[in-house]
Design a protein around this nucleic acid. Structure first.
Lengths: 178, 178, 178, 178
DNA sequence: TTTT
DNA sequence: TTTT
């Protein structure tokens, strides 16, 4: 019997995404998004709100695209899976973090997304199948959203060169579907 | 711009579900299910497997149904949302747990599910809309799957009497869709 | 073994929604939304686009809310199920229509949604569980989006009075979650 | 504003899947699966059941895997999108068919799935990203599940050779995730 | 029939 | 830390 671990989120970024590069040259993007629910309390009748923050991790091309097009306040649709990760906090105590490893992304055009002057507010990109395999977990020894970026991209990246962060859009434009 | 926080899981229970009752008489059910993914490591070419355990929480009628029909090894489809919860560990240190608050359940008939002699291996139940509202979070001060059950169901439950745990199936049979 | 029939759509309304009332007083709302996908043709290298139109049907309170808040051009998140329906075309020939019976809706704030001066661009509403049961199919003898509305709401609606179409927002404001 | 067209189904095959090959050598697999819902009629109180049949289409490697592992009665999890298709019926009249173009599949081990003696009852496979692009629609001029297979696979398939239908499992075993 |  |  197969199992399924699927998460579907729509929310806004709390900060700009961070893109780092792993020793093998693969990009990793981290950010967090907020989802909120509101309801009427059954006892007080008062309007209640609860916000949940989700830590998002993306790899490879999806990481590069997110790093290029998303920013603080962007509204985004994400699909991925829940993945736990042990790490040692600054207090030396082991904790477990939960990340959403996103494999699909669609940019939803919020007001803020247009402020950057981008000529589009629309996006869709599905991760290649091989991305389904979890990336090296050991690389992430702390909550990714608190993690310091590697000092520099690797000199000789394995498998694929990261798109330079200043690369023009055209570099990736030919195979992203928007 | 609305947000969305949706989780869809298919997996097996690691233990029998636990049903407790809150002071207002509402049932709470906790259990955890495993999802696993396998992939071929790109470097070694070796088959890899990773299992993720998800802590599930259900409320009210869905909790009662789960407590009655699921057991260790059962395969189940669940739909719900991710919800974090702060708690103090036995070591006195605050941690954050992540639960899946399930609002929909379908029993998937695995081999183990039939051992109980139940005449069906099929189920579906969708939570009432009002359940969407998060229940009192304060009631859960520790990871729910480690939490001791209240000593007894409340004498005068608010709103709805919990189905007694020994209640015959017929008591709830008339409005569950299986 | 349970089955699952779930559809998740994000798209824009091609026209204003139409709300009708069934003889028992229940509201039915019909509209269609467009989803589009774009890709680079592998042979020509040319950008391709394909738009799909989905016929949406909603019942009861969700129908009333949609009729009140959605309009042509609105962007909306919908969750529901696929349901086929036989009908006789104007040419007297039987055909099969496919509708999405929506049970959950979230309004996604597009530019057009704000033009109406509504003070919110955010919505979420989940259908009550009992709505899961298919409504009387016989009432729909033609594609719903082409169907003429009943001449008038029933004089003595069964079970629940429809919110008059001119009813102020406050009438339903107290139990919808936005 | 991006759009989304996603379908998630769990159901059983009504017949064995059919695999054909397009002129460019790509495999196409067609079958249909049933989903059923049951509910208590609100008036009569009687148990009602409704079965919906979904026409499934898969391309390329997913088509080959489905053709090899699924059969009549198999229980399967599918993810894909809704796609309409105009065709001319035997009576010369144009109709519209609705297919689910599946891009992800997981085999759910039901009783029937084991009768073939397969050493596994578990599967998962996600389509490569490029499959997201709709295949040549013109190739499908009739409801796919009624369509006769091409007389033979092409002599010189473009891009990738189809796994011969009699090929041993090992031929594809090295990169499918089960 | 939406939208970019 | 987003947003309404």
């Amino acid at each position: 019997m197969s199992s399924l671990n699927k998460v579907i989120l729509i929310g806004r970024l709390g900060r700009d995404p961070e893109v780092r590069y792993m020793p093998n040259g693969e990009a990793v993007c981290n950010f967090s998004i907020a989802t909120s629910e509101t309801w009427n309390d059954r006892n007080s009748g008062q309007r209640q709100e609860r916000t949940e923050w989700h830590n998002i991790t993306m790899y490879r091309r999806l990481a590069e695209i997110a790093g290029q097009y998303l920013k603080k306040g962007s509204s985004v649709y994400l699909e991925g899976r829940i993945q736990s990760r042990k790490y040692q906090g600054k207090d030396g105590i082991e904790r477990t973090a939960y990340d959403i490893i996103a494999s699909e992304m669609k940019m939803l055009g919020g007001r803020n997304d247009n402020s950057g002057g981008a000529p589009y507010d629309d996006g869709g990109y599905q991760q290649q199948s091989y991305q389904q395999a979890p990336a090296q977990q050991n690389y992430q020894s702390a909550p990714s959203y608190q993690q310091e970026a590697p000092s520099a991209p690797p000199a000789a990246p394995a498998r694929r060169a990261p798109a330079a962060q200043a690369a023009p859009v055209e570099d990736i434009d030919d195979d992203i579907p928007f």
